[in-house]
Nucleic acid binder design. Sequence first.
RNA 1: GGGGAAUUAGCUCAGUUGGCUAGAGCGCUAGAUUUGCAUUCUAGAGGUCAAGGGUUCGACUCCCUUAUUCUCCA
Length: 874
Amino acid sequence: MNASEIRQSFLDFFHEKQHTIVPSAPIVVKDDPTLMFTNAGMNQFKDIFLGNETAKALRVADTQKCLRVSGKHNDLEEVGYDTYHHTMFEMLGNWSFGDYFKKEAIAYAWEYLTEIVKVDKSRLYITVFGGDQQDGLEMDQEAFDFWRSHIAEDRILLGSKKDNFWEMGDTGPCGPCSEIHVDIRDDKDREVLDGSKLVNRDHPEVIEVWNLVFIEFNRLANGSLNLLPAKHVDTGMGFERLAMVIQGKKSNYDTDVFQPIIQEIAKLSGFAYGADQQKDIAMRVIADHLRTVAFTIADGQLPSNNGAGYVIRRILRRAIRYGFTFLTLEEPFVYKLLPVLTSQMKASFPEIALQQELVAKVMFEEENSFLRTLSQGIKRFENFVSQHADLKKIDGGFAFELFDTYGFPIDLTQVLAREKGIDVDMKGFSEQLEVQKNRSRNAAAVASGDWVMVSAETHPTKFVGYTQTEATARILRFREVTTKKKKHYEIVLDQTPFYAEAGGQVGDTGVLVSDNEKIKIFNTIKENNLIIHLSADVPEDPKAVFRASIDVQKRLKTENNHSATHLMHAALRSVLGNHVEQKGSLVDAERLRFDFSHFGKMSAGEIQKVETIVNERIRENISNETIENVFIDEAKSMGAMALFGEKYGDRVRVVSFSRDYSVELCGGTHVNATGRIGLFKIVSEGAIASGIRRVEAITGETAENYVRQLQQQLEQIKEVVKGTGDTVKAVVQLENQLQKAQKEIERLQLEKAEADADRMLKNANSTHGFLLINDIVKNVGIDQLKQIAMSLKQKNIDLVAVLAGVQNDKPALCLFFTEKLANEMSWDAAQILKEASREIKGGGGGQKFLATAGGKQLDGLEAARKLILSKLNL
RNA sequence: GGGGAAUUAGCUCAGUUGGCUAGAGCGCUAGAUUUGCAUUCUAGAGGUCAAGGGUUCGACUCCCUUAUUCUCCA
């Protein structure tokens, strides 16, 4: 079986068992602050387990794109070194939401593995939760008994809480789990040592393939466990591992999931896979990371310098680093592997093909910029080494600075040091890294308290904000959340007019008012689908009936901007082309920001066209036509722009302003008719990444104020330039005149300096075989004195000049002599002036043969000049 | 969210403990060389040293604020 056949067989199997097959959720998580990436198949069903949402189907199966870069069994820096660690992988999974439980879950897994894909039964082992004293839990006898009907008892092993008890987090749903392990060692090795001895021992050939989780408890913040009313099954099977087992390989990287990519890397680098251990590692790293980065960018996450984008950047850079160091790939190359990946994956994941051009552009740009970082780091390293002769060890602090400030990877520093036959002080480096980590951890610490359940109702909050700005509401539950700086409260209501931050639109602010108290809501956010009101105050009487009202002015302005965003999106597509796709947006009361794919800068004409079209649509006063609960296919046939990377349920909300103009899937709030938006004005256009542009615009009152301000500015300028006709021409003329005048001043100053110099030369005395100038000039500052000295220098005569000047009642000094004299007499002009300037309460310095000084005590000037002459023995 | 850095000519970057009339390479313009081109040589134009404030006799350099970008950590 090849990889796609295996994937299909899994989905077909569960389809026959009455499971609904759902598509993979995006790998990038947008509406869960605790998670950056989908890291398990169950993520998209989290709300069902948490009880925030009811399941649409009781039995579900899918293959899910997952990404893990850290965690107990996963560390980015380990990927590539062994046969089975990945950053991105597919997780095959089947779920039961309050439907079947342990018996069926176990039977299905056994049937699929042994009957469908025919894994050798003698290679399988089972683990079952063995109980935990601290939690007061018995062993999972139920699971044990069900397994006994399929497999011999001595192949069922009891596992600890660490291996066989699954928890979503510190609190929340959890339960015992049962794992299926497979022993893929050669028969010879199997005879020597029984596989059961190697289960959960990190042996690369005795591995877990499938984890069946039986969710039956809820863990509270105090650590105790409650039984859940509805029990769920959550299973996950690593697709790449399964392929390895079925295809009889010893490494995931030897399956047809990875080999085509690895062979392409071999071709590009000119090294064969399998010939050299270090090069093999590099190829595995690149193959793995390519998949991760490509899928993530295709799902809408661009590399950036924080959060999820930063994780992607780091992964891509790791791939480049390995190519650079071990495969002599010193030009951008990762993006060249995309066509292979695409042709392999597009059948199951069409987004990867549709976004290929953009992904390639973004990757190419990232690769280039990192290669620049590398070459600068190398330069910096060379500098350091050449400045520290006889270096035995590279200072840990310096290595850390290279890494921390300039992004130069520590292992490359080690490679460079080794080439010079020196070590890097890794202890010092690690210490500084640890300091940095602690600082960050302290700053980010968040402690959430238990939810205080006010009401027994469990239904999700009813959002009434599409039609109302006020509603009566009861508190369902609330909790206290403490961050380092302050604490706040999170409140869940039974119904609310507050829009929670989503889809780029900011959350509402407002108040909850009861008979006795008034609680200010400073923001509204969404955790998965839970609407959470943020407040600085704890409700004193949580059971009271509240009047929930939003800040209407703020909401109206935000709606103007949101609707304008839709109009602009459509206008951009008609002006620039259909390749324009939304890549992100931010809508608040002040402005709208829209990121979209487009190659190249928008011309002034294009910007104007977009502005014009949007303003036309506003004047047409098009009514908002919003349809709730539309099937996704129907929405598409209406012409809705389906956005890749957005997670949508089976039914969606469609917002349109004229069916043939703007139709979008959107959960946000909008104007009833476009006329209310008022004036629309684009204020900036720029690039945020290769192939991605950002436009910012304003509407309504804000736009009016903006235009008014421009007008006022223009009028003021007109007044200043006294131009009645062409103001621009007048300003340009003024600028030209100014430039000319400045040049003229410079020229005159130079001329004057020349004249001064000539005059001084005439009056100079000849002593000791050279000319001595001792002069004082009125209305001349340090800069001009310097100019005079430079003029004297050009004369190429042996001379000493002691120049003094007075400007704005401040004394200035300049001492100049030819370099030849400086050498012969061992004079140091800077040193002499430093001492002399004390007489005028100032300071000075410069070079050996030309120095200047200034001060603030005018009557010390004579003394200073005398001092200089005496220092020169003149 | 926290820490570290960067911002100097059209581009890529130098600029030492505060004092050099702010430089280099590439690019640009003109001239010379050449049958022509590449090349080479000569000359020239091009700078609000990110913006704003402060310290100082003096700030590209030190301090503060802001903006943008990079980078590490979370």
